[in-house]
Computed example of a mutant assay.
Amino acid sequence: MPKVQETILEIDLKALKHNFEYLKSKLKNGTQFLAVVKAFAYGNDAEEIATYLQNLNIDYFAVAYANEGAALRKAGVTKPILVLHTLAVNFDVILENCLEPSLYNAKILSEFIDFAENENQKAYPIHIKFNTGLNRLGFSESDSGYIVEKIKTTQSIKVKSLFSHLAASEDLNEKVFTLNQIHSFKSIANNFSKAIGYQPILHMSNTSGVLNYPEAHLDMVRCGIGLYGFGNSKKESANLKPIASLKTVISQIHHIKKGASVGYNRAFKNKDTLIKTATLPLGHADGISRIYGNNKGFVTINGKKAPIIGNVCMDMIMVNITHIDCKEGDEVTVFDGKTTTAEVLAEGAGTISYELITGISQRVKRVVLK
């Protein structure tokens, strides 16, 4: 790898393959694997990652919104793509790109049927989402009769899958709740399938569901965070490899006298005789939120931790390097899969890895290690 000269996000496809194969090893033969690549593949590079996974013979992809799916099609992804949060304004994009909408309430179901009929569609694949406890999106069990009636009155659509979402599969203290969700969805799906006269694909397991609840694997599983190297527990994270490393360089070094301050609002004031700081070219516009300022976050320089001091700026952060032998131009690691993972950095600031990695700005250069 060439010397780092600017802020970059390295993406390791070998680590991605390892995670895919590890998660797939937990499934019985025949269980399909859906990769969740929404939000730029959790802040990485959706097109590179989806193309790579397609070559590994993945079965399905999922995105949050239709335009994300359209970008994958433009990049050459041909596998089925489920749109998890369908909006009526994007029906044209869905049809033009052969995307498959999740329909989750009476309004969106009725509107999509009308759209499909107006476009002379026959058996267009749709996915019906049921809410079993997350209370975010989804039909309730009592809506089943209405959905079946709507489906039977049109030939424009066909149910490709029924699915739900586990709310707390990573928290074994909520095992009773999760088992109730699984039981509820199986009951709903069984009755629904009998009513429509054919068997759609059934799925409800996320990464933690794959790892903790084999009884919920069903016909297909949906993995997001696990593919990117995090297992929602220290035990499982140890079996996975974070695929992304955020690196930058030292732009300038300052010597801060006693009583002098660093950054906006003078949030850091030096009480020591003399300290040394380094200014780095990344900030909250790059995804390093202000919550990491004032010693809550840190970077690694030449193997040593350098705490972030003062407030995080839009384009820069300052770190304390008094105890580190380094110079301007030296490489800096914010997070990686070895010394400090995004999970560790996020926990120190009271948040989660999802928020940190998905927040890495698109202005940060992506470097894909193939």
Rank of each mutant, 00 (worst) to 15 (best):
G337S: 10
I188C: 03
C326A: 05
G350L: 11
E111S: 11
G30T: 14
S208H: 04
N302D: 14
D143H: 06
M204L: 11
A168R: 13
F192H: 13
A244L: 08
A123Y: 02
N294D: 08
D12K: 12
I360E: 05
C326T: 08
I126Y: 07
D272Q: 14
K304D: 07
S193K: 00
A41K: 11
L202R: 10
A238L: 04
L95S: 09
N120D: 14
K122E: 09
G30N: 12
M318E: 15
A35E: 09
K365E: 13
R266F: 05
V37K: 07
N239E: 10
T339V: 03
V367I: 05
K3D: 15
E117R: 02
E100D: 08
I11Q: 01
Y146Q: 02
N270P: 12
D59R: 05
L211M: 03
V364R: 01
N118P: 06
L345W: 00
S245G: 07
K296I: 02
S289G: 15
D12L: 03
Y42T: 06
M1R: 05
L109T: 06
L137K: 03
V89K: 06
L166F: 12
E68D: 01
A106I: 03
T341D: 08
S208L: 07
E96A: 14
C313A: 15
E343L: 10
S144K: 07
D272C: 00
A238Q: 11
T339L: 06
L56H: 13
A238M: 05
E48M: 02
K79M: 10
A267R: 09
I8R: 00
N67M: 07
P101C: 04
G231R: 03
I147C: 09
I243N: 01
E355D: 13
G138V: 04
